[in-house]
Amino acid sequence: MHSFSITLQYIFTGIAVGSIYAMVALGFNIIYNCTGIINFAQGEFVMLGGMFMITLTTTWKLPSLVAFPIAVALVVLVGVGFERIAIHPLKSPSVLVLIMITIAGSILIKGVAMFAWGKEPCYLPHFSSETPINFLGATILPQNLWILGCLAAVVIVLAWFFNRTLVGKAMRACAHNRDAARLVGINVKQMVTLSFALSAAIGAVAGIVITPIILMDYQRGAMLALKGFGAAILGGLGSGPGAVVAGLLIGVLESLGAGYISSHYKDAIALVVLLGVLFIRPAGLLGSAEIQRLKKF
């Protein structure tokens, strides 16, 4: 292999992996913006997306195009249900308590998934062919293109939603200042529910597109959540573009680290870079230190 092709291959791999981190990070951001909390159950939304898709397509034999929206809808239902049961009824909870509740939620969702789908990894066929596409000596799977496509679609829809629709603008208002938003007549609690729905949907999409490549089992969400959290922080909490850039960056760093330095320490390399960035820019790459100061936690 030519050394240029090798580098290109590392970058392709990194982008493919990183686009998943980016999607998970986007999910974190939406809930963070509305509530100020990190939802530790975000990884479970990803896992559920993949699992529902598997059941719908293999057990129920639904065509993928039909199963896809149903799977997303089911995860949204779980996300909204979780928010309604465990978070909505609380009066002025602290950020740490909310985070603990999401940790408990993730344990519960994981437990139910274990009984529903068993402990072995489940498998989903690729959306289109499995024949790799060759590009300047490096290869990429059609499924990787699906992942990138989904990331692009999610980004476009979110940009449209937050900039062009009234509800989206209301959610942004909550993110900037909850009290002011309440004063102008926005139902902040409804916005919180909506943020859970939205980030559950994004998680589900991510879960569905990666399952053919990574297989899915009930405890798969934890690692994806951890990486996504890293991406959200690196990009600057609350920043959409930050999440995408940082997700891809972490993916590429891991891949280059594994290729050129040591696969034993590849995750550590990405983390060292993350820490380095935080020491220089304590609010992440694209985060604002000013906004950060206004947040409770």
Binding site: I6, Y10, T13, P121, I214, L215, E254, L256, A258, S263
Partner: peptide
């Protein structure tokens, strides 16, 4: 690779560029 990793193409690219005549993978699913 870490047990929960999702992609090993980086490691395998390195192996592909080496003069290895065979690969041994030692792990459980996935």
């Amino acid at each position: 690779y870490a047990p929960a990793d999702t992609d090993m193409t980086a490691q395998l690219t390195k192996i592909k560029a080496s003069e290895a005549q065979a690969v041994i993978n030692w792990s459980v699913v996935p």
